[in-house]
């Protein structure tokens, strides 16, 4: 016999002779709730938050550089960059937009408290878009809600088209897949159709966009998609 422990921490539950408390609680429930609160706050201020995830070297920073180049000053944009140790990615983006480096000190993924610290160091302005460049890793970042409206996974043509099947959680939890380094596709054994097919077996509704950040290929499509998604967020916000 056991008693059920509710989500409320303050409620004391009498214990039955077995001395086993049934709890049945999501271990990350506090983090999820905090992320949801922050997401709602961003929605209210009209800031569309994008969490960029991929393996190391898939081109997250290059995609952001191309995005900033394309938009110029069209939207107020800020970037939080997660990295294990250096500030190199942040340095690449500073010429374009306000950037705050989040150094995890060896940690393999970003968590919400670190994102909140980074936010506090950004200029105190309202942004239209906030990009969070996660640590390069297709495993751990999948389990951490950073309050984003959109999770975007990058898959580069140089890393092989078998990634979706190997890292199902990451592709299942992403809304958009960007196939990067398309300029190299003719030179490598990467099959875009196969990768798309594999990803859609995991997440049927995922959007797929092919880009080459170095040559601004597909960047207009990507930027338009972001603007549309932000508009959808704004219009849904208007509904009471």
């Amino acid at each position: 016999m056991s008693s059920v422990y509710s989500q409320s921490l303050s409620k004391k539950v009498p214990l039955l002779p077995s001395k086993t408390l049934l709890i049945n609680r999501d271990i990350q429930s506090e983090n999820r709730a905090a992320a949801q609160r922050l997401r709602l706050a961003f929605t209210q201020t009209g800031t569309f938050v994008v969490n960029l995830v991929s393996s190391p070297g898939a081109g997250k920073t290059s995609l952001l550089e191309a995005t900033c180049r394309w938009w110029k000053n069209k939207w107020k944009t800020a970037v939080l960059v997660g990295d294990l140790a250096t500030e190199r990615d942040a340095d690449r983006l500073r010429p374009f937009v306000p950037v705050q480096q989040l150094t995890t000190g060896g940690g393999c993924h970003l968590e919400l408290p670190l994102v909140e610290k980074g936010l506090a160091k950004l200029p105190n302005e309202r942004f239209d878009f906030l990009f969070i460049e996660n640590v390069g890793n297709l495993v751990c970042p999948a389990s951490h809600d950073l309050s984003e409206h959109l999770r975007v996974v990058l898959l580069s043509t140089t890393e092989g088209d078998d990634k979706p099947g190997k890292y199902p959680k990451m592709f299942r939890t992403s809304d958009v897949m960007i196939v990067t380094k398309m300029d190299l596709a003719p030179h490598v054994p990467f099959n875009v159709e196969q990768a798309t097919l594999d990803t859609r077996r995991i997440r049927e509704s995922i959007d797929v966009i092919e880009v080459s950040s170095l040559h601004d290929q597909g960047i207009s499509h990507w930027c338009r998609m972001l603007e549309q998604r932000r508009n959808t967020m704004l219009s849904e916000r208007a509904i009471p």
């Binding site: 056991s2 214990l15 077995s18 001395k19 086993t20 408390l21 049934l22 709890i23 049945n24 609680r25 999501d26 271990i27 990350q28 389990s143 099947g165 199902p168 299942r172 859609r200 077996r201 995991i202 997440r203 049927e204 509704s205």
Partner: peptide, 28 residues
Amino acid sequence: FTFRCGQCHSGRVRVISGDEFRLLSITF
């Protein structure tokens, strides 16, 4: 990890079990 319905093969499926990391119980 092929997310398809076993009956009608639709890909429009919702995960009802399998993404848990839950604390179930504590025994004293």
